[in-house]
Design a protein around this nucleic acid. Structure first.
Lengths: 226, 226
DNA sequence: GTTTTTACAAGTCGCTCGTACCGTTATAAC
DNA sequence: GTTATAACGGTACGAGCGACTTGTAAAAAC
């Protein structure tokens, strides 16, 4: 047999090129030739590693989701040793917002996929299936918060979790559209969390918002700007 | 001069055909020939009324937004003679959700545009400019509510308005994706409004949600199902 | 050293796309 | 009637698309 190459690595390289292009042009505006050129390889190579264009698209979407999940997980682990549910939830939501170039790119590509997923069942299922897991995780955190007395028990529900996810998603999409900036989105998120948890407790390091200051001076989970 | 036709009407007919197709295939998946066929006219006619494809797309988007605005306005006017700010806001938000076939189609097309608007400045501006007006309107309603003592004054802000808009947008996008149904989205919206306004007041006809019932038995602003 | 198989590169095919152009008809102005 | 022009329908063009096929080099297996 001939030289063995790392298939998975090659596929990642190619899908990375796809992201870079889809980032500025949308998924539908990218051809296989574009991807090949961006990746600096031949069209034949792209087709060697992905049977069809849909193959490539699906693979890239899966990886986008995987990376996003990983990014959020790291954000959580980067928190202080014993984070409160509130801090965990804030880190999760912040991870879903386009706060830095990388997450912005990921969301931009995700948005491009979204409009396809709405019509394409295969993509739709892929985009959909992460949500329930996220919701359950959020709900767990809310229940934890209720046990600690941080929030009233009647708000520790899956509905409340879904509300938080939907809100964050809406905030993110408006950042991408340019309706408001990443910092405003974060401030709005904090405002919602404050109505949920009440003003941030003084026995905790995470700061609430005052009347108008930026609401997040330099927390460990605060990403840089766009 | 030859026979005079209603240009505006023709343009509307053609863009209506575009919507019908974009509804199931996305904007990028629709060609001018498709539009012509769907509208039952020749390609030449489409080109006669829209110089380029972008012309058609932009016109259709403007009309989508106009119709959506109109639909919401009608929802508000359909309310009881002296609606509370809460009722008005609920009607607005409900109007932004895909509750019936028409609004679902509109949002589906809007979603298809969204992923283009993120990259295309012209479309982006078009999609963006309605938001501030909506936010201001929401904020006015919140201030009105604060004057009536329905909500605490510190929540009658433009931030709170933006929060409500973002949440509704997120809810809508998840309905389109199939994460949850229209009724669940409405229930979640009501949950948020309840945390804002408190449990629905008994001196008002608008019903709150109980523990699990559909949360909106037969209000005048409750659209049919999908 | 021969064979076999992988990893490509390059070219080609059939198709669809947006756009441009041309021809025809019908009507309003004169 | 004649003419001018809007309102089309039909067709053609060049580009770009995804998919496919073929050619080739090289390394692992024997």
């Amino acid at each position: 047999m001939p030289k063995k190459v790392d298939h998975e690595a090659r596929r990642r390289e190619i899908s990375a090129a796809l992201w870079r292009l889809a980032n500025t042009r949308g998924v539908d505006g990218v051809s296989l030739r574009d991807v090949a050129a961006e990746a600096g390889v031949s069209l034949g190579r792209v087709q060697h590693y992905f049977r069809t264009k849909d193959d490539l698209l699906l693979y890239a979407l899966r990886n986008i989701n995987r990376l996003a999940t990983e990014r959020i997980r790291q954000r959580i682990e980067a928190l202080e040793d014993e984070p409160t549910p509130r801090t965990v939830l804030r880190a999760c939501c912040a991870g879903m917002l386009p706060l830095d170039a990388e997450s912005r790119a990921g969301l931009l590509v995700g948005a491009a996929y979204y409009s396809r997923a709405v019509h394409d069942p295969a993509l739709g299922a892929e985009a959909r299936d992460g949500i329930p897991r996220l919701r359950d995780f959020f709900a767990d955190q809310l229940r934890l918060a209720a046990e600690r007395g941080d929030i009233p028990p009647e708000r520790a529900t899956e509905d409340e979790a879904m509300l938080l996810i939907s809100l964050t998603d809406g905030l993110a999409s408006y950042v991408l559209l340019g309706v408001h900036g990443p910092d405003q989105a974060l401030a709005l998120l904090d405002r919602h969390l404050t109505t949920l948890f009440g003003p941030a407790r003084p026995d905790r390091a995470d700061r609430p918002e005052g009347s108008d200051p930026p609401a997040h001076p330099a927390g460990p989970d605060t990403a840089g700007r766009d």
